[in-house]
Amino acid sequence: MHMFRRGMIFATFFGSCIAIALLVASLGTKHWVNAHAKRTLNPHESNGRINYGLFSGKKDLNVAYGWRSYDIDIIHMLKYEPDFLIYGFWLGTVTCVCGALLFSDLAAVFAAINAATSNSCFSGTPGLYLWNILSFFCNLGAIALWVAQYYMKIQYNVLSLEDLDNSWTSLNMAELGYSFWFVVGATVAHFINIIIIYIANSDKKIDPIIPMIEEKTNGAIMLY
């Protein structure tokens, strides 16, 4: 049973590593949003593809004369075009993902420690619950904030003011990209970790309690 528990706890190390990889990928990739665009003046001849992450992205626009690519600087857009995204939701999303990454790192480190040594306050069962639950809720926060961002801003527009002035529109042509779903995957990984920790600690072997009379009887026998 002791080896079973250690093995289960060590399994959460791999779960945390998966979560770390997914969160790093979500920060490094540029597909939190994927969208198409059309020009209202010539919708059948124009086409646009837009994708961006939390910090940068790319847009390809075709006005019927060929494709042209442009880089998107999200921080610049937030500064000079405040209606592009809700700044508080964007900042909250970035903060939650970074917090989830930090707690995932701690969960991985202390899972390895707990599998190799005896329990302590922050590397034992309470600590493993703490780091995984904190990361789980940080991930949930990032998901909730970006979904709110989508329904309040992204689904209506992902284009700059310059593009809007040139009669481009992305209304109802945007969707959540795979970078966002990486965070969902990290959330699932930590939820599974929490379940594993619970299972690993739910079947602890309980030492039998010897009644006091039986202990005295056994003691008397030993004297004889």
Rank of each mutant, 00 (worst) to 15 (best):
F84Y: 13
I86L: 09
I86N: 14
F89S: 06
F89E: 03
W90I: 10
W90D: 00
W90S: 02
G92F: 09
G92M: 12
V94W: 02
V94A: 06
T95P: 01
T95M: 11
C96Y: 05
V97G: 01
V97L: 03
C98Y: 04
C98A: 14
C98E: 08
C98R: 02
C98G: 12
G99S: 05
A100L: 13
L101R: 04
S104C: 14
D105C: 15
D105R: 15
L106F: 12
A108D: 04
F110W: 10
A111P: 07
A111M: 05
A111I: 11
A112E: 11
I113T: 02
I113P: 00
N114L: 05
N114D: 14
A115R: 03
A116T: 14
A116Y: 15
A116Q: 08
A116V: 10
T117N: 14
S118R: 12
N119H: 12
S120W: 13
S120H: 10
C121L: 14
G124N: 05
G124E: 06
P126V: 07
P126C: 06
G127T: 12
Y129L: 11
Y129C: 05
Y129G: 04
Y129V: 11
L130C: 14
N132D: 07
N132K: 09
I133Q: 08
I133V: 15
I133F: 12
I133S: 12
L134Q: 03
L134D: 00
L134E: 04
S135G: 13
F136Y: 15
F136S: 07
F137I: 15
F137R: 01
L140P: 01
L140V: 10
G141L: 08
G141C: 07
G141D: 03
A142F: 05
A142N: 06
A144M: 10
A144L: 13
A144V: 14
A144W: 10
L145S: 10
L145N: 03
L145H: 02
V147F: 07
V147H: 01
